[in-house]
Design a protein around this nucleic acid. Structure first.
Lengths: 113, 113
DNA sequence: TTATTATGTCAATGATTCGTGATATATTGA
DNA sequence: TCAATATATCACGAATCATTGACATAATAA
């Protein structure tokens, strides 16, 4: 994840519908979610959904795969990991004042059932 | 850091000059940097710099303080920490596939001289 | 094949954003 | 006080973005 990728990713996540979409896809995990289901969940039209999905795709944050007449979208774990690393290492420079102890606040989630 | 704050922060960081500005301010730490020095460093006009600084301020990512005729800008450690937590916990849901082992890649920086 | 379902693409429009030029405010020094 | 320095604000045009409506494509079912 270089600066250009990160800029695209930040831009993609700066829009509420797209941020909501990403969270839905993260929660769905490797199952993924069909484009239509995403649109229904978010209460937006299918063509607008399609365009937002395209932005997230271009940013490399999600991938898609056709399954029958549906198209299943899945989050890219590696891209999200890359973005997280970029934020912590490049932006925050790994400063303890910022990232120190961050592990704990995320570990609490990781341990939850 | 709630969703609205995070959206503003992502928007602020989706522009190259502003991302560069934030990194400069993180590197400067609690010393901060004067607005004019930032503009000179980044090779942009002072009024454009001022507007970008305003966007970062509105997003809560930086603060300013007048010092003589200069205005010193400093990064908000807590805001950056909040944004990092939001990304890891809310967006990535603390999934091990994404955030597992992230500590190590940032710790390596923290330890560097 | 025809109809239906699921999704994508294109063009248009209003809203927002980026960068510039001109002007205004605050601080310091002569 | 007057001039210089440092920064902010305002107004403008160009560019980009979000949303809509209309049309296109792909897969399945009748």
């Amino acid at each position: 994840m270089n600066k250009t990728n990160a800029l695209s990713a930040f831009a993609a996540l700066s829009q509420e519908t797209r941020l909501d979409t990403l969270v839905l896809l993260v929660k769905a995990g490797s199952d993924g979610v069909a484009a239509g289901d995403l649109a229904r969940h978010l209460g937006i039209r299918h063509n607008l959904m399609s365009q937002h999905l395209n932005v997230l795709s271009q940013a490399g944050l999600i991938h898609s795969e056709r399954q029958g007449r549906s198209i299943i979208y899945r989050v890219s774990f590696s891209a999200l990991r890359g973005l997280s690393t970029f934020l912590l290492s490049e932006c925050c420079q790994g400063l303890p004042e910022i990232v120190g102890g961050l592990e704990d606040s995320t570990l609490s989630l990781k341990g939850a059932p």
